[in-house]
Amino acid sequence: MSRGGLFGTVAGLIALLALGLLVLPFLALVFHLSWARVFGVLAGNERVVATSLVAAAISLTLVVLLGTPLAYLLARTDFTGKMLVEGLVVLPLVTPPLVMGLLLVFVYGPYALLGGLLGRVGVGFTDVFPGLVLAESYVAFPYYVLAARAAFLEVPARLERASLLLGRTPGHTFRRVSLPLARGGLLAGAAMAWARAIGEFGATVILAYHPYGMPVKIWVDLNDLGLPQALPLATVLLLVAVPLPLAALLGSRRKDA
């Protein structure tokens, strides 16, 4: 056997092992699940599912709108304190979600300075839908920004320069050159951010226990009704969360823009 062949075999075996370990918990879910109950649970939790989907969609929109310019600037410019900014972006990623929730209460809670001010103009974040969106956005933000930054770094700066030299404005260049060429990485980042947002539990349980999103409802059902009741809703969470990342993955594989 050639060295390349041996390497391929070993790598293939390790990959199979990794894949097996990855799939194992989901196989367990399939064996422990009654599909009839999934549909039953779905019928009783339409509002919870809708809350989760809408909150995650708004979070993703916010994350993409706020994160894309930041990711682009981090990829394309050098400035004093850039390392610090990059560190700040990673901060929510390394902060345990529960702690993140506590920190959000310190800022957006009714007795915090900013939260108090916002409360006076009728914008609250504790135990309300905007709180759910806020918590999900915070935890999803670094996933998108880091992926988007890497995607923009992959776009050769000389192509953007070529666009400017052809008389196009920086805005046009960004839309017609940078964005299409970074599309794969941006979609992958958006997929990760979506998955992170819709599955967020730690920060939301602290800041916005109500209205129930799916992760908090699964926790409540587990405590109140036990595993047989929690498992079907967990399956529903997986089923509604997966299509978007899957579409993003397929979209990022398409070569043409």
Binding site: R158, L165, G167, T169, P170, V177, L181
Partner: peptide, 21 residues
């Protein structure tokens, strides 16, 4: 004067063609 307003053509070995177009 910004690059986009100079009306200068620039060509190097890399060609810099947009691969997605």
């Amino acid at each position: 004067m910004p690059l986009s307003r100079r009306r200068v053509g620039y060509l190097s070995q890399e060609n810099d063609l947009f691969p997605h177009l």
